[in-house]
């Protein structure tokens, strides 16, 4: 089963480079362009959240594991930084009639929640683990 395992530094330029590497990987190159676009959006948000929040205090490593399976891409992202506040995923910021009023950071989690399935977070042995599936076919919005 085609898979990608990457370890990257917690840095926005390392995130950018990793996204390029993932999308160029043979495992991802054959996917439909819509799924590739969704993968890039979601992985950018997830990885940049780790850089900005989990590793807000300093450097660290982010471990990515992606598996291309029948029906989509299964992703697991681990880091050794700060836990999510309350050990839970931030609430799904619903976008109201005036999207501009969405609190800072709300766009990112909104995008992740729109584009993933089976989104799960757990904290184990001083480690954060976020897992989700990018479905083959996008949900209607």
């Amino acid at each position: 089963m085609p898979e990608i395992l990457l370890v990257i530094a917690s840095d926005p330029f390392a995130v950018r480079a990793a996204l390029g590497q993932i999308l160029d990987d043979p495992c991802m190159a054959d996917l439909r362009s819509d799924l590739r676009a969704r993968a890039e959006i979601v992985l950018a948000e997830v990885l940049n959240n780790v850089v900005e929040h989990a590793y807000a205090d300093g450097p660290g490593e982010i471990i990515l594991h992606l598996r291309c399976v029948q029906g989509g891409v299964i992703c697991r992202i681990r880091d050794f930084g700060r836990a999510m506040p309350g050990l839970a995923l931030p609430g799904g910021a619903a976008i109201g009639p005036d999207p501009v009023e969405l609190p800072e950071g709300g766009f990112g989690w909104h995008l992740i929640r729109c584009l993933t399935e089976d989104l799960q977070y757990c904290r184990r042995d001083s480690r954060n683990e976020l897992s989700f599936r990018l479905p083959e076919t996008a949900r209607a919005h």
Partner: peptide
């Protein structure tokens, strides 16, 4: 472009 357009639509910024 397509991915940028998708981000605007999903966040309803296309209405702003």
């Amino acid at each position: 472009t397509p991915t940028v357009d998708k981000v605007f639509r999903l966040t309803r910024m296309d209405t702003v």
